[in-house]
Every structure is written in structure tokens, then in C-alpha cells.
Design a protein around this nucleic acid. Sequence first.
DNA 1: TCCGAGTTGGACGTAGTGTCCAGAGCGTGG
DNA 2: CCACGCTCTGGACACTACGTCCAACTCGGA
Lengths: 196, 196
Amino acid sequence: MERYGPACAAIAALLSPHAEVVLHDPDEDVVLAVWNPFSGREAGDPSLLGELDEVRPGPDGVFGPYPKVLADGRTLSSVTAMLRDPDAVLCVNLDRGPFEQAAALLAAFAAPVAPRPEPLFEHDWFDRVNEVVGSSVRLRGPVERWGKPDRLAVLSELDSSGVFAVRRAAPEVARALKVSRSTVYALLAEVRGEKP
Amino acid sequence: MERYGPACAAIAALLSPHAEVVLHDPDEDVVLAVWNPFSGREAGDPSLLGELDEVRPGPDGVFGPYPKVLADGRTLSSVTAMLRDPDAVLCVNLDRGPFEQAAALLAAFAAPVAPRPEPLFEHDWFDRVNEVVGSSVRLRGPVERWGKPDRLAVLSELDSSGVFAVRRAAPEVARALKVSRSTVYALLAEVRGEKP
DNA sequence: TCCGAGTTGGACGTAGTGTCCAGAGCGTGG
DNA sequence: CCACGCTCTGGACACTACGTCCAACTCGGA
């Protein structure tokens, strides 16, 4: 528990919220701990490791992956590892549902067309400014008619997107918002001063 | 290794072929073993765990999940767990690409009227430098051993990603590449002078 | 040993940043 | 109608960070 806890937490964190990690004590046949539980089991419950009888261990003492079905119908993929010294049984249950759905969609829709080369990255911060401002224009009307709250909202969004870490961003934002550079900094100070 | 091997194999098996599990020896700073390798590293390579310095450990001694980018452009989610007695570092790298594609499709079809509520792209240009450099380290070895061509290649990649449009990027790159700021500009001029 | 390629730290001029303020514009209430 | 408060403005300013340049240094090869 002391020893394997971090590893279990790591697995649970990596796959959250789609994986449940269960650590068993094979000697006492009880559940020691559960990370990110969704099967309803909790620490102290009986392990019921008998189901492993029907599965053959592979090399490395790993059982599975083998399928499971939860009471609510969710399908899982599970693997179990026998850990030694101290003895423990590590069981990872992965909710296969989201991936099955995604796979089905991909198979149905993505098969004929190009496999999406890679979006790469945005070095068009200039465009992003116009993009954010533009979408706000659709909500709030023309930029010239905006009030202070509108500007604050948009600036807050731009700021938390890290736009202002880019060189020449502030003047560009001022231009897009049809305000002066001074105002941008003033409003920015206001936005930042009230959050942290 | 004897002790953690089964757990590592279990994780690798569960997520195969999309996850790579690396077990490090923090004392010797070497890779002890790799399950389902796809980043090119293998047992005996230096660990280069320095990149963890920039990540905060959560509770349970787990780092991450934090993003990484491979040299070929694949995006990864990684978690790292510090294991004690015996000391070891467990690192799981999950190829996020398939999930991102699936998620994008699901989002596109499940929300037909999505007004793009949150673009929220990478505001971690700082991290991107370390990602690019880090993934190159895996291909080319430790940064101290690089020659000029290696630096040129990495700088070219960083430059075309627009990294240098960000404030304080140049000194940060210099730090990551273990060269002086002057050299960064010199090499950068070379990279830029031969392309356009 | 000398040479040249490459790197370095420092110096320096400049672009761009962030702050400040006096004043203009404007709606509101007296 | 004026006075007041609120907001934006344009310019001034100090300052940070950028990008360039150069003399000095290191290091491997002729």
C-alpha cells in the first residue's frame, strides 16, 4: 500500500476518469484501496479474485487484458498483475465505452477521407485576436458599441489565453478593440488585479 | 525491477500499442527497462529526469499528467510516479493522438451547434521549448553532446513554430540548449538566412 | 604550433512594454 | 445649464528585453 500507492495513483490519474485501479491483498482476500472508483467497490470489500481462475496468466504474471461487463452495462477491459514481496494484486479496469464509441465513429466517418495529417500549432496569434474579438462581435454587436464590461470580458479571455506573452500583442489588441494602447493596459490591470 | 516489472508490464499491456512504460533508476540516472517502447529510448540510456524539475508533483508523489511532444509530432500524456524502497521512477507515456482525434470527432458530432466556447490553446510556449528540446534529446542524446547541425535543426523547428515571437523565448531556448544567448541569435540568423 | 570554426560574455542601440497623468468626451443628476 | 464622475486618450517616460556586434576564448585538426 505504502509501496504501490503512487503507481496506482499514477495509472488512475493518467486515464482519469475512464480507469479504476484496485489494489488487493491476496492473503486476506480484501480490497486494500481503490483509485477513481466506478464499480462501487471500496476498501475493505472482499476481493472475489476467483474470477481470475478462468483467465490464464501471461508472461510477467499478468492476466489479461480480459473483458468485463458492469451491472449498468458498461464494458471494461481489465488487466491484473500479481505483485510480490509484499504480495499484492493490482487490477486496472478501463471503461471501454468511450473508446468503442469513438472507434465506431472513426470507422464510420473517418475511414473514407484523409486521416487528418496534424493540426500542428498556432503561430497565428494575430488571427486569434481577431478570432476572439470577432466571435464576441457576433454576441455583443459592433465593437464601437461595446461598454467596459464587454471589453473586460474579452480582455480576460485573451489574457488567460496567454496572448499578451507574444510580442506586439498589446498594440494589435488595441487596434482590434478600437481603443488606445493605454486603455488596453488599464483594463488589463483591472482584469488581473481582481482575479489572483 | 523484479518488484515493479509486473506492474509496468500490466500498464503497457492494457494500453498497448499506445503507451510506453519506462522504469528509471534515479540513483544511477539510467533507464532500467522500457515496455512497449516507441520513443527510441532503451535500457541503459541516461534517464534525463531533469525535465521533471519544471513539473510540480501532486499529492501521492505523482507528477502530471503533463504533455509531451515527440520529434515526429505525436502528442503524449505522461505521468511519473516516484516509487520508494527500493527507489525507482515509473514513467508512463500515452500516445494522445488517437484519443484526440476521436475526441475531436465526438465533439464535432455530439455538439452540432458548438459556438466554440473555449479554444484555449497552448499558452505554454515555455513548455513547448522544453518539449521540442526534450524530444530531440531522446533522438540525439544529451544536449551537451550536440553538434552545430543538431542545434540548427532544433532551432529551425522552434523558429518555424513561431516560438521566438514570444517574449523571453530566446533566453529560455538558450538555457534549454545549454548555449549562450549570443549563439542562439547567431544560429538563428544562419537558419533564417538559408531558407527564404 | 598555428589556424579556423565555433562559442562566449559584454556592450550597445533600439523596439516594444508597462505606467502615469493631464485633459477631452459624455452621460447623469442637481 | 452646469457640475460631477466615469472613461478613454495621447503623449511622456523609465525600463525590459531584443538583436547585433565584437574581442577574447576554446578546441580539434593541419
